[in-house]
Design a protein around this nucleic acid. Structure first.
Lengths: 242, 242
DNA sequence: GCCGATTTGTCCGTATGTATC
DNA sequence: CGATACATACGGACAAATCGG
C-alpha cells in the first residue's frame, strides 16, 4: 500500500476540520453529495470515512437530516486516550523522566489457573516480568507481563527496561493490532507495598490486558496496577454496532 | 425498516457460530466467497458483517490468509459488558433486589464550571439528581445525574426512582445512541460517606458519562461513583480505525 | 395531508490491487 | 508463477427519514 487509502485521507481531513472548529459542536457537516464533489470519489468511500468518524464518537449521522458533530474541542486531552497505548506508554512518550525497573524476569510454563485468566494454552512457554514504572521519580505503576515465548523470542531484561513494544515492532517485525481490556479497582497487596510509592492509597486501578498481533494471535497478557491519582481511562460506547 | 438488514443477520449468524464453538478460537472462519454463497448476497455485505465482528474484537482479518477467530468462549461474562449499559442498569436488569433512592432532585442552571466539564451550554436548564443504588441492601453506587430539561421534560422523582432510561425510550420516544465514558479512581468524599456503605474502602471507581441521543444531542452528563469490589469495565482497543 | 427535494441507509455487481502460500 | 483471499474503490439502484411548500 504505497499511497494511503482515499477513505483514510478523507477521515483525516474531516477530523482536522473538526479539531479546527470549522464544523462546530452540534452543527451538521456538509452532506455526502458535497463531500463526493470535494474529494472526487464515490459516495461509498465518503461513507466509509464518515463511518470511521462516527465509530469514534466524533460525529453522529441522523437519517434524512445530516451528520451532526458530537466532538467537543476540550475533549482532546481526556478522550484522545483509550487507544492501544497504555498510560505508561503515553507517559513515556510525553515525559523525559520516566524509568522502568524490572525486578522479576523469568521463564515460566502456563499453569491451569493462568491459562483460564490469560487464554494462553496450558503448558505454553512464557516470559514473566514484573515491571515498575517511575514517573517523576515516583513508582506509580506495577506491571505483571506474560509474553508468549514463541511469539517474542530473544526477550531480555534490558529490552524490558526500555520498551518491549519497540522491540516487537522493530527487530521482530510484529504489528500490535488489538487489545481487550478490563478495568477494575483492587485493594493494595504485598507486591504493591513492596514496589510502589503508595502514599496512603489502599486501592489501585487495575487494567487487565489481552494483546493480539496483526495475525490475530494473542501473545501478551498483562495486569497493570496504577496508583489512582495518576489513572484515567476513556472509551466510547455505541448502542448499535455498525 | 420492517425486516432486519442483511448485514445484521449475517453478523448475528456468525456471532452465534462463534459462541457455539463452531469456529474455535484462533481458527479461520470460511472465506468471503463461501459466505457470499451461504448467505446469497454480495461480498460487500459480507464484508460489512465481518467488519462489525472485527470491530468488537471477535475476529481479526489477515490479508491474504483469512479471518481469524479472536473470541474466547470464557470471555462472555467479562467482555460482554462495556456496551451502553451501566453496571447499575445491568444489575437492575439481572437482579430483583435492586433499589434506587433519590435524595436530591432539583432544577439548576448550568454554571461555568459545569459547562466546561459537561459540555452543556452555560445557563442551560438542567435537572440535577443524586441517586443511590442499593444491591442486596448495600448502597454501592452514587450517581450525580444532570439531564437537559429541554430534552427530558416532565422528569419526576418517581421516574428517577425507577428508570430514567425507560422513561426516555418509552413515553418520550427518545433513543439513546452513544455514550462517552472516562473511568478514574477517586478518594472517598463527604457525600460518599453519607450515602454509601463503604466498608472501609477509601477510594471509589468513578465513571464520567456524556450521553447522546439518536440525533446526536448530548442530553445527559453523569458521574457514577462505584464501590470497588462491585466494579468492572471492559472494552476493546484497536490500533487502526476501520 | 400530500408531494417533491434533500439526505442518509442498504445493497449489488464489477474491477483492480495486494498479501499469502 | 498461479490460485486463493482479503482490501479498496466505483457507480448505480432503491429504500427510508426529514423538511418545506
Amino acid at each position: 500500500m504505497l499511497v494511503k487509502a482515499i477513505y483514510k485521507d478523507i477521515y483525516e481531513s474531516l477530523l482536522s476540520s473538526l479539531r479546527s472548529g470549522e464544523y462546530p459542536y452540534q452543527s451538521f457537516i456538509p452532506p455526502e453529495s458535497h463531500l463526493v464533489e470535494k474529494f472526487q470519489c464515490s459516495h461509498n468511500t465518503v461513507r466509509r470515512a464518515l463511518a470511521m468518524l462516527a465509530q469514534q464518537g466524533y460525529v453522529h449521522p441522523v437519517h434524512g437530516k445530516g451528520v451532526r458533530v458530537t466532538y467537543l474541542a476540550h475533549e482532546r486531552a481526556p478522550f484522545e486516550l483509550g487507544g492501544l497505548e497504555t498510560f505508561a506508554e503515553a507517559a513515556q512518550r510525553n515525559r523525559l523522566d520516566t524509568v522502568t525497573e524490572v525486578p522479576v524476569f523469568e521463564e515460566v510454563a502456563c499453569d491451569e489457573r493462568l491459562a483460564v485468566d490469560s487464554g494462553f494454552p496450558e503448558g505454553a512457554g512464557l516470559w514473566h516480568l514484573k515491571r515498575v514504572r517511575r514517573i517523576d521519580g515516583k513508582a506509580l505503576i506495577l506491571d505483571d507481563n506474560y509474553f508468549l515465548q514463541q511469539a517474542v523470542p530473544g526477550l531480555t531484561r534490558e529490552i524490558a527496561e526500555k520498551s518491549v513494544f519497540a522491540y516487537l515492532e522493530g527487530p521482530l517485525g510484529m504489528h500490535v493490532a488489538m487489545s481487550k481490556r478490563t478495568v477494575t479497582v483492587e485493594p493494595v497487596g504485598e507486591d504493591d507495598e513492596r514496589y510502589l510509592d503508595l502514599e496512603g492509597f489502599d486501592c489501585l486501578a487495575v487494567v487487565t490486558n489481552h494483546v493480539f498481533d496483526s495475525e490475530g494471535l494473542m501473545f501478551e497478557y498483562t495486569r497493570s496496577r496504577h496508583r489512582p491519582d495518576y489513572f484515567s481511562f476513556s472509551t466510547v460506547a455505541m448502542r448499535d454496532v455498525r
